[in-house]
Design a protein around this nucleic acid. Structure first.
Lengths: 215, 215
DNA sequence: AGTTTGTTGGCAGTAACTGTCATTAAAGTT
DNA sequence: AACTTTAATGACAGTTACTGCCAACAAACT
């Protein structure tokens, strides 16, 4: 069934997914920097391509719209959270787990990336097209939450309850991220703001999902 | 402070908001029909404009993107729900209220509009650009829920808890709408499907917001 | 009729993409 | 090393969603 054969291929091999991912992430960083500096509308695909050192044509091969250039950076964060969620031990409450495990989420990625992500979140409030891309991204993230939650709840992912629960989690994350981005607007990311964010997130998630564990 | 003066104006008066709304709704119906018939990507702004009997230039004055042409139709539904939500008596549980009051939501608008809305919901699963517009719309709807909920909860709209609660409500609505659209895909809207939809919506909303009333 | 204010339509222009194809890169084969 | 094969890239033309601009028209009041 699974065709794991290592047939000797001919010709140039396709780039690995990791390499492609790195390339996309690199472009993403340049794009977000430009977006933050001069706004999304004022930034052209040509500029992004030039900054990233690729032709405009390949830029469009990597990203379908210029707004979606922010995707890799944001996905990085979401993946980190999903990893934490996946490591949630069955016997522990979500609140306690997040308080202890959510710390590395911030450390693992470089501080600059976190700042960039927050910058994007702020930008989405003014640039409609970016807001749309942002919401699409969050929805895709929600689907991955669904899988994790389904496993934990012992249900199949497409179940109504599971989907709603994932949506709740996603909504809490979004609200918390919005607040965090707003608080850290002028000043940078202070450890206190970070702690406050984590606590509020843990509280709200624990509250919203209190039907899940322990109960 | 409030300048309620009825200063005698000169020149042609601006079109009333109601008239503008009607115009937008009319265009919306044509656009959705075309989208459903031939897909969003294959439908051009020129086609929509011609179908609605306006120039392409005015079409772009009424809608910023061709995807946002679906807005008035969808907003109609959301407004109906918000009205029901607003009429929610303090002493009643949300489940009971919805079971009795959600009926008119469907009746008030013409059946064709409801079908059109469901068609849009189905389309959003295949057409990314439409999905983005759809999510933006739902988020805007969420904000109006926030206001209603804030009033009921005796809190200010921007409070974290209120926002999360509104997001939960919005998420449930979305999941229910998705299911309803999928069920009514081949066949039309049967009374049974409608009833099932209303009941599931009431149940899930009652469950998800059980922290709100009565406990 | 004339003036004022607002809406509409036409037309040119911009920029975000897409299709196509020649060129280059990285592998294996002889 | 030359040759073949497969895949990525870049250059260029083309399409289309939208924007700016201005002339034409519509609806009010004088």
């Amino acid at each position: 069934m699974a065709d794991g054969e290592r047939v000797p291929r001919r010709g140039r091999p396709p780039v690995s997914d990791e390499q492609r991912g790195r390339q996309r992430l690199d472009i993403s960083r340049h794009a977000v920097r430009l977006f933050a500096e001069q706004g999304v509308a004022a930034t052209s695909g040509e500029q992004i391509a030039k900054a990233a050192g690729v032709s405009e044509r390949t830029l469009w091969r990597y990203f379908s719209t210029k707004e979606s250039c922010v995707e890799p950076l944001l996905t990085q964060m979401i993946d980190a959270f999903r990893t934490v969620l996946h490591a949630w031990p069955p016997e522990l409450g979500l609140i306690e787990h997040l308080r202890t495990a959510y710390q590395p989420v911030i450390d693992s990625s470089s501080g600059a990336d976190v700042e960039a992500v927050l910058a994007v979140v702020r930008l989405t409030h003014d640039e409609p097209a970016l807001r749309a891309a942002y919401l699409v991204l969050r929805e895709r993230a929600e689907e991955t939450f669904t899988e994790v939650l389904a496993e934990r709840m012992g249900m199949r992912p497409h179940t109504f309850d599971v989907r709603v629960q994932a949506a709740v989690m996603s909504a809490v994350l979004k609200a918390a991220a919005d607040d965090f981005a707003r608080e850290t607007a002028g000043r940078g990311i202070t450890p206190e703001a970070l702690e406050g964010h984590r606590d509020r997130l843990a509280d709200a998630l624990g509250l919203a999902t209190r039907g899940l564990s322990g109960r």
